[in-house]
Nucleic acid binder design. Structure first.
Lengths: 340, 340
DNA sequence: CTGTTAGCGCATTCAA
DNA sequence: TTGAATGCGCTAACAG
């Protein structure tokens, strides 16, 4: 039988209340007594039962997710995953609120962040652009004891407790490697399309991609990155224009959103033989992969990201550290054959 | 506030004990009363608190994992993941036992299966060869109320409650697609190496691979599969012999274990330009990928598989159904750039 | 067939 | 600075 607080109390010769005080680091216990209890804990190998503790204190974890509004398919899938996690709230003892903010509007995020009451929320997960004001607002929350995790795109330099997302430099490198191999000796140019270079994930992908191409596939030169604000129509126009202007383009890497536009741009020029790699499995990209319009999709599992964010935020709130292995988000490569 | 058993008792005008009886489907309650309670449950939207229930009944979940002994790296990694899950036993309320059995020995597995006491174990996860005797032993356990899940390789036709592993036909197809693209127009032969065609996962991979090559890459012909019993030295010899005998071989797909032998066989013939795809990230394969000896590794995340098996077994024991999305094991493709 | 009562392991008043 | 007593939501004897 695992030792309980009763065993510790007996071993240390004190009452339950005192044991509880030292276990939870509350004041009002003599140095001596604290040590006696700690010795007993150590000797008996006591591990507290979190579920019993949470039952006794009727604990729930109020969490808020901040994500961009707008038509970006990936973000809508993310939102659906959060909604699905909300359904499990009674089981997880969470209480989740979603706040959507206009995309690419740092001030809006800061406003939401500043409106959060540290007394009533234990954790926040947000997808944010990499700006100084947001970084500051995040650190402010941290100072107030709120756990903050970044989602999808990191906020380097901030004091967020965790980043729930992929290594985007590695993702860019992976794309470079795929495109290099798929082009297999053809020489020419690769068009790189990005959403916003203010997003740290997009920046990272672009640089990883460029590094691999330069080092390993010198016959492929990069055109771009062109910035599209993740708008599908803009992507379509940019791709069309680039393709028409430059017959040497043999491949396209879309490291941002707007795959619908990309697909349309390519479809309008059926004579071009292109290797295409894009990000995120959505309705459009999935079809493009199946149809052979895309050669590969690089993906992050946003269901995993959301579940991971919840676990990590809860763990930090309890002063535990999460299982690093389980919380690592993989860089998925999907061909049409291994699509889930 | 969420309704509790007290609320239901009040609403239905009965005592706690009666509520408990109907909630847990125990006998000794009148039809009428059962219905009254069920109505109350429905009307109040009662959801029982599993953690409180498990606390009250001091429930733990005794689980046993059956895996092959021997030097197979993948299986040793799997064992390490189980060991790591055992460390979390106090938190998960599990009690895990590992049984290792000689590889490719169905009788040994059947003996372990038959020795399991349904009174003291709630769930079993096993990696098994696809044989009739094992299927029967599994079904026998199921009949005794033990939850059984297959791990890594499935047991089609059995009544196991869940398969924790990848779709191996799709994995084989994926390998075919990768090799086809990596060979990029070169024509020639592809050597296929397998462990045992009695393993359903190996069979499935072989057939998926063949299907894609035939349909999409008609310039590539298959040599094999050669069977190696997953022994590294056998793999090395088989690969060496095949390579020496047939200069037309331009690629190798090792769908089983023994990557060390494969690496040695290739290293001994540095003049050959080969595209190589293998399975499972282990110490050896990881290095081979980094060194450019392998072009890609197809992987299943065995940490995920083990955690999933535990969740699924527990959920079934509680009569819940697990979150299908979270329990799906992905077919990971790793290039050297996205290795975790 | 149904109800009363005493816990499970822990937290938290309220007194002392 | 410490302890006794009560309850979290649920289960399980034991009576009736």
């Amino acid at each position: 039988m695992r030792p309980t607080v009763h065993d510790i109390a007996a071993e240390a010769g004190v009452s339950l209340a005192t044991v509880d005080r030292v276990l939870n680091g509350r004041p009002g216990v003599r140095r001596q007594t604290v040590e006696r209890v700690e010795k007993a804990v150590h000797r008996l190998g006591y591990i507290r039962d979190l579920t019993a503790a949470n039952l006794a204190r009727r604990r729930i974890y109020p969490l808020v997710f901040i994500i961009p509004s707008g038509p970006n398919s990936f973000m809508r899938v993310l939102e659906a995953e959060i909604a699905s996690a909300m359904q499990r709230s009674p089981i997880d003892r969470t209480s989740i609120r979603i706040e959507t903010v206009p995309p690419f509007d740092p001030d809006a995020i800061v406003r939401v962040l500043d409106a959060i009451d540290p007394k009533t929320v234990t954790g926040v997960a947000l997808v944010a652009t990499d700006t100084e004001e947001i970084r500051a607002a995040v650190d402010r929350l941290i100072d107030q004891g709120v756990q903050v995790a970044t989602l999808v795109s990191d906020l380097p330099g901030s004091r967020r407790v965790h980043y729930c997302g992929i290594d985007n430099i590695a993702a860019g490198r992976t794309a470079g490697n795929l495109i290099g191999r798929f082009c297999a000796g053809r020489s020419g140019k690769v068009l790189v399309v990005a959403g916003s270079l203010k997003l740290s994930d997009h920046m990272d992908r672009a640089s990883g991609f460029a590094a691999v191409l330069e080092a390993e596939f010198p016959d492929l030169a990069i055109v771009g990155p062109v910035e599209t604000n993740d708008d599908a129509d803009t992507v379509g126009q940019a791709v069309g224009a680039a393709l028409d202007a430059d017959p040497a383009i043999v491949a396209i890497y879309n490291l941002g959103a707007g795959n619908r536009g990309l697909i349309e741009g390519i479809a309008a020029r059926p004579a071009r033989r292109l290797s295409v790699v894009a990000h995120e499995v959505t309705e459009h990209s999935r079809r493009a992969l199946a149809d052979g319009v895309f050669d590969a999709i690089i993906n992050q599992d946003c269901g995993h990201e959301v579940r991971s964010a919840i676990r990590v935020l809860k763990a930090h709130a309890d002063g535990l550290d999460p299982l690093s292995d389980q919380e690592r988000i993989r860089i998925d490569i999907f061909l049409k054959d291994n699509l889930p």
